[in-house]
Write a protein that binds this DNA or RNA. Structure first.
Lengths: 200, 200
DNA sequence: CGAAACGTTGACCGTTTTCAATTACAGTGG
DNA sequence: CCACTGTAATTGAAAACGGTCAACGTTTCG
């Protein structure tokens, strides 16, 4: 039970786990509610613990443009540490729980504690790696090859639908690709919605 | 003339412009040559000044997998600051010029100079923003909408082919999309390979 | 001038999306 | 424990979109 809850609520990762976080930093937002608004003074960055949030920018003509959809475990508005105002809205798609990391606290820690900085830089560097890899994955053309590459990388989690959206494929296309890979003997279907790698 | 040359050879951006860089840090690699090998001790990260390089990982079965293709202005192997070995090959696709940023120099600067760290963190944060936006762009389904969104964002540079590849579209598809946008009156073709936004 | 690279357009083809229907599983309340 | 409900998984068929191939125009640069 407890493990499941921990699973569903990722904890604040290093180096921010060192900050003094109290209940007043926890932000609970109802589905449809705003975490911050475009143009508002950027006081904080956020860590999404639970739910789904979306960063939306409004163009001059008023058209909304989604910049990023965050899932639990993602940081949001890291760059706000370096900009005076938020450049987009942050809106919750579901009831969500976030940890507010206030700008002064972050900048203090980063300025005064080199170890803290290094760990954050490490985190950002590795994130960058992941994003680059994901872009490279999305550019693989036949769906079968893309799914195979991503599968080998270990992107497939619990949920195939989510896996599909990570690859920018429809779930249907993903199921079919997985089916072909099974037929090729590269992977094995080990149950309803479960696929496991084969030994060479 | 000189400006053009500066254009073609991006200079080392902050904060690394503060490091003491001499000729011995400049790495020139012929097309097909390697900058570093998977498994080798990670001594440095690199800044690509000219040319094209590719990060390639070899799977257990020996299949090569491209992780990232870098263009001038990109950093490569930032995460190697935090890992003992390179986890992929770095191979030049053209004659290339890189600046080698040695791990001890970088870690020293990051550990001893908080301002240096902050600027690097700022850079990484903004890179992250760009990648996230690019992923979001690539997930826009009809090519026309994708091109329009990217165009509004200002991704279109000098080269339409490059613009196309950024969007994971073929040049042909991109030309057609641009044509439709012109037909819709959203943009104007202002010359051979030149498109400009329309006023509302 | 000539070669090379980029831009542009057309036609055809293949893959993926879309839409629809069915099955499997998890969680809920009786 | 079981029916009940919702979400995810799965499969099929048809349509649409973008990729591929091919041809040609334009610009740049040596």
């Amino acid at each position: 039970m407890i493990e499941i809850m921990l699973d569903k609520f990722p904890t604040l990762p290093a180096p921010f786990d060192r900050l003094d976080i109290s209940e007043r930093h926890i932000v609970r937002t109802q589905s449809g509610g705003f975490v911050f608004h475009q143009g508002a003074t950027a006081h904080s960055m956020y860590f999404l613990q639970k739910g789904k949030i979306r960063l939306v920018r409004h163009t001059e003509s008023g058209q909304p443009v989604t910049l990023f959809q965050a899932s639990p475990g993602d940081f949001v508005a890291e760059a706000s540490l370096f900009t005076p105002n938020y450049h987009c809205d942050c809106v919750a798609d579901r009831n969500s729980v976030l940890v507010r990391l206030e700008k002064p606290d972050c900048l203090d820690a980063l300025s005064s504690n080199p170890e803290f900085s290094l760990i954050y830089i490490e985190r950002l560097s590795k994130q960058l790696q992941l994003y680059r890899r994901r872009i490279e994955l999305m550019s693989i053309k036949p769906a079968k090859d893309r799914v195979w590459a991503a599968f080998c990388d270990g992107w497939l989690g619990e949920n195939i639908t989510e896996f599909a959206s990570t690859l920018d494929l429809t779930p249907e296309a993903t199921y079919r690709a997985l089916g072909l890979l099974v037929k090729d003997g590269l992977i094995t279907k080990s149950g309803y919605g479960r696929y496991t790698p084969n030994r060479a």
